[in-house]
């Protein structure tokens, strides 16, 4: 097993060789194929990749929230609880899992416009959440909730007394973010929290998340297909492709010295802030169907570095520099240099 742990600290979460399989009518499909990573208790990890690469499935698996058709076929999700015990989320009983959710690990979903029960006032849903975890002191719940709502820049009195449809999309998402911190979880998973929102609201949400993390200090998994967004919030970034992590590195290293052709492709596909738009290069082809993956490296058919070896032999995640892992046979050949030259020789150091 490769060591993807940062040596200095004990991880809050370590995922080891996680395999999630969907049982479909036309056979089984693996959406997560052996994912491993560690997360420190103050760290923010971004999972990036195209739609259908298994990001959301991975996020749901961390909370034991997978749909009925999905099953964890192998691996561990080790979580260090407040009292120092290490539990495997995969093996928790239903009752333990229910307590684990939201109190230890909360999740904010993509498209949260519909995340609230339309027939209950926000305050009732807050109380529901607190009561499910045995908190019955309404005054304390109220205080905690009002504090969080003020942190996300909402007017607590107005919001708590509203029905979900009376709030705008951006407000609802902010309420959801506040609600995710109600029970002071130590890990929050954000699954594309800004996808359904307009660009200004997106900005506001990102600012809120950044300041909340400074204020309250929780670990965070940020799932996104938006690289610049991930760059703003993440300490480390994991690139996912076809159900695997193909590159994992500190955010600076990953953005300036990508060592996997897929990460490089994603970076080249981002329009530059300055410079001509012609420098945008999209990755040819489309992601493979998880039901019929090519032999060898699953990215090989779209990769300009691919050789016969890539089509034969699947590369494993291995260290390319301290704190930097890549799953590519030709990682040493991958660089952003050509892109940098086209930008006019800008330094990338």
């Amino acid at each position: 097993m490769i060591d993807v742990q940062r040596p200095s600290c004990q991880p809050l979460l370590s995922v080891r060789d996680l395999v999630v399989q969907y049982q479909g009518a036309s056979g089984a499909v693996q959406a997560v194929r052996g994912v491993s990573f560690d997360l420190a208790s103050d760290e923010s990890l971004a999972l990036i990749g195209e739609s259908g690469c298994g990001k959301t499935t991975l996020g749901l698996a961390l909370l034991g929230l997978l749909p009925k058709a999905a099953r964890i076929m192998g691996g561990q999700i080790l979580y260090r609880t407040r009292d120092g015990r290490v539990v495997d989320v995969v093996r928790l009983s239903d009752a333990e899992l229910r307590r684990f959710r939201w109190q230890e690990c909360a999740m904010v979903f993509q498209g949260a416009l519909n995340a609230f029960n339309p027939v209950l006032k926000i305050w009732d849903q807050v109380v529901d959440t607190a009561r499910a975890h045995g908190f019955r002191d309404r005054t304390r719940i109220r205080e905690q909730c009002e504090r969080l709502l003020r942190l996300v820049q909402l007017d607590p009195t107005r919001v708590l007394d509203s029905y979900p449809h009376e709030l705008s999309g951006g407000m609802r998402q902010r309420v959801m973010i506040a609600l995710s911190l109600l029970l002071e979880p130590r890990l929050v998973i954000y699954d594309e929290p800004t996808t359904a929102l307009d660009i200004l609201t997106q900005r506001a949400i990102i600012e809120v998340l950044r300041s909340l993390r400074q204020e309250l200090g929780f670990a965070m998994v940020f799932i996104s297909h938006d690289l610049p967004l991930a760059a703003e919030l993440a300490d480390r970034v994991a690139t996912m492709y076809a159900g695997r992590i193909v590159e994992l590195a500190d955010v600076r290293n990953l953005f300036y010295r990508p060592r996997h052709p897929y990460t490089r492709g994603l970076l080249l596909a981002v329009p530059p802030v300055s410079g001509p738009l012609t420098t945008v290069v999209s990755i040819p082809g489309s992601p493979p169907s998880l039901a019929s993956l090519p032999a060898g490296c699953s990215f090989a058919p779209r990769c300009e570095f691919a050789t016969d070896r890539c089509r034969r032999e699947e590369p494993t995640l291995s260290t390319v520099a301290p704190g930097h892992w890549s799953a590519c046979h030709h990682w040493s050949a991958v660089s952003l240099d050509r892109w940098m030259e086209r930008l006019g020789g800008a330094s990338h150091a």
Binding site: L63, L65, R98, R99, F100, R101, W102, Q103, A106, M107, F109, G111, A112, N114, A115, F116, N117, P118, D128, T129, A132, H133, M176, L179
Partner: peptide, 12 residues
Amino acid sequence: DYVTVARARGLS
């Protein structure tokens, strides 16, 4: 979505 979110919130 709100049913999934309710489950995520640990509701019984």
